[in-house]
Write a protein that binds this DNA or RNA. Structure first.
Length: 278
DNA sequence: CAATATACCTGGATGC
DNA sequence: TGCATCCAGGTATATT
């Protein structure tokens, strides 16, 4: 579910309320997420700590604690973080609950359990973060997300440009919904081999990536079936989607029916008239 | 090394 | 109503 915009919307929702708060207790489910919940590390390094701030890298949230430890949360496909009053009924698939020093708690709900939780103790946090960050791709809002850089990275890659955009080791934060939308906005055919795109096409992709992701953030993200912001409200960018999940419906630009295929296991949509192969 | 397939899960929609 | 099947926003790992 959550791509960069949904993770960023979650981060902003948390920033209103969490910095300055202390985590007074932690509970968890007996299930494992994509990885085992690091229960011992949570107890030792996060319980009793004050939250300084929350950052985002790729689709990960980094909770920076006063003791310099870092709590890392990934939402997977169905993860949602919510800030709720302690007495509010709990839900099936609540896997982590951070009790705060007021009447609230932060709950992680994730039905498919593709999310993950990690704790980096203060003594290793800086090194772990550095190591982690080098493995993640370029941030779309970073200045090094630039045409010449992408052209160079794509030089030896014959994969379709859509797979290239979705490769988190190359570019951070772009998942299936936004890859489809960005390529429509840039008028680039999703099956174009990455190494065949001229520098001008990369420029368009960059401009449209930032435009689409920003619009999506402002719209509170996309709620396809279950994404909710931290206060429980859905996003509404799904109402502005031009091609994603719109197979057979008219292209908003030219009215031709939107085409769908499956690429590397992921649904891929484009307008056969507006998006030409490079 | 690059590209693809597979595995990890639940739940909603669809079809019989 | 029940049951089987397919599909879904992600990513690490194994395999070609």
């Amino acid at each position: 579910m959550p791509e960069l915009p949904e993770v960023e919307v979650t981060r902003r929702g948390l920033l209103d309320q969490l910095p300055g708060r202390t985590i007074t207790g932690i509970t968890w489910s007996h299930h494992r997420l994509r990885t085992e919940i690091p229960r011992q590390l949570l107890l030792e390094h996060i319980t009793g700590q004050r939250i300084l701030t929350i950052d985002r890298r790729a689709k990960y949230l980094l909770f920076r604690m006063a003791n310099k430890a870092i709590l890392l949360i990934h939402l997977g496909m169905t993860g949602k973080l919510s800030l709720t009053q302690r007495e509010t009924v709990t839900h099936k698939h609540d896997h982590l609950v951070l009790q705060l020093d007021n009447t609230m708690e932060l709950r992680l709900n994730d039905s498919r359990r593709f999310g993950s939780i990690a704790v980096w103790p203060a003594t290793h946090a800086a090194a772990r973060e550095c190591e982690f960050s080098t493995k993640e791709g370029i941030e779309p809002f970073d200045s090094n997300f630039a045409p010449d850089a992408l052209f160079e990275l794509a030089r030896k890659r014959h994969v379709p440009v859509k797979s290239f955009l979705m490769n988190g080791r190359i570019i951070a934060g772009i998942g299936n919904i936004y890859a489809n939308e960005i390529l429509f906005a840039a008028r680039v055919h999703p099956l174009t081999p990455a190494n065949r795109l001229p520098i001008e096409a990369w420029q368009k992709i960059i401009t449209q990536s930032r435009g689409i992701l920003l619009q999506a953030i402002e719209a509170g993200g996309s709620t396809i079936s279950d994404f909710l912001g931290t206060s429980g409200h859905p996003g509404h960018f799904q109402l502005q989607l031009k091609v994603y999940s719109r197979a057979g419906l008219p292209c908003p630009r030219c009215s031709r029916p939107i085409t769908k295929t499956v690429l590397a296991g992921r649904a891929t949509y484009w307008c056969p008239l507006c998006q030409k192969r490079g």
